[in-house]
């Protein structure tokens, strides 16, 4: 098949991956163990990471094997935490009338293409805004919002007091607000609401 990688590129990919795996295996297992609190799960997931990157290497050129390994490990760690209910899935929270469903699984009344594009831009603007928060505010915000951690969990992880975590959160919210809501009265960047898509 022409769209598959040729043998040479594939071999080069595999070699680079093997080197990266050898180099980072300890890091991945160590981090996963820390994150999941279980060495056996960590080993399983590390294996899963390798299986996936090998599959990926068969069809795509890998520019940065380390980045691919880390990203895949992060992704699978999230899946595992989700499975354990330790990651919030607010995007599918049906109780919140203001919210759309998850980005991938938009409900029956799909948004117009313009809305979909706007939606994507909104998402990436928000992700960028979170990513550009100061380090501690960002860590506190992400752990609280997406990893379902209490301030006391976060305080322990970051080695600070709970009231300091609350300050980080305030800082994060203030900055995100300033960046994403330019007018004080109205949200500039809410997700498309059902109402705006013409739902009754």
């Amino acid at each position: 098949m022409t769209d598959l990688l040729d043998e040479v590129a594939k071999r080069r990919n595999i070699k680079a991956l093997e080197r990266a795996i050898k180099e980072h295996h300890g890091v991945l297992v160590g981090w996963l163990t820390k994150k999941l609190g279980c060495a056996a799960d960590a080993a399983d997931i590390a294996q899963d990471v390798y299986v996936r990157v090998y599959k990926f290497a068969a069809v795509e050129t890998i520019d940065n094997p380390q980045a691919l390994l880390f990203k895949t490990a992060a992704n699978l760690a999230i899946n595992e935490l989700k499975r354990r209910g330790r990651v919030l899935r607010r995007q599918v929270d049906a109780d919140d009338e203001n919210m759309t469903d998850t980005v991938e699984a938009l409900p029956s009344e799909a948004p117009t293409p313009e809305e979909a594009i706007g939606h994507k831009q909104d998402i990436s603007a928000m992700v960028a805004a979170i990513g550009q928060l100061p380090e501690k505010a960002r860590a506190a915000f992400v752990k609280n919002r997406f990893e379902d951690k209490t301030y006391s969990d976060i305080a322990r992880e970051l080695g600070v007091s709970e009231s300091t975590v609350e300050k980080y959160m305030m800082d994060a919210l203030k900055r995100l607000r300033a960046r994403l809501m330019r007018k004080p009265q109205a949200a500039v960047l809410p997700l498309p609401r059902k109402a705006r898509r013409g739902k009754s």
Partner: peptide, 13 residues
């Protein structure tokens, strides 16, 4: 704002 951010979460996480 928070609800919108929550929906954008996975990528940031």
């Amino acid at each position: 704002l928070l609800a919108s951010l929550d929906a954008a979460g996975e990528e940031a996480l």
